[in-house]
């Protein structure tokens, strides 16, 4: 099973979002280095209306993390431990568990 993450951020964030974005980038980077089954990309939205262009993005709160098109966070920090646990407990039937 391969996992692909997307970190969705607004292009012009406030300070609080800058901190959240940076921590989420660190997490995704770290997990991608540790696991060969995980890759990720940064998706930068120029305008809130662009939310509709990201498949699977359901909650318009940034930064958001999606794994294989399923949104798992919105406006929160994802830690490496939490992401690894999420990927390890992935169920083919039920998809990702919630954090």
């Amino acid at each position: 099973m391969k996992y692909h993450g997307q970190l969705v951020v607004m292009a012009s964030p406030c300070t609080a979002c800058v901190i959240l974005n940076a921590l989420n980038i660190e997490t995704l980077d770290k997990v991608a280095r540790e696991r060969s089954d995980f890759s990720w990309e940064l998706v930068q939205l120029m305008h809130p209306k662009d939310v509709a262009t990201v498949e699977g993005l359901e909650v318009e709160k940034m930064p958001a993390v999606l794994i294989n098109g399923e949104q798992i966070t919105a406006g929160t920090i994802l830690s490496p431990r939490a992401l690894n646990r999420l990927l390890d407990t992935y169920s083919e039937e039920d998809g990702l568990s919630t954090l």
């Binding site: 901190i19 921590l23 660190e26 997490t27 920090i77 994802l78 830690s79 490496p80 431990r81």
Partner: peptide, 14 residues
């Protein structure tokens, strides 16, 4: 808390 997060990273939550 934000300063501690800067110093510790996400480790602080655990």
């Amino acid at each position: 808390f934000t300063l501690a997060l800067h110093l510790l990273g996400t480790d602080i939550f655990y």
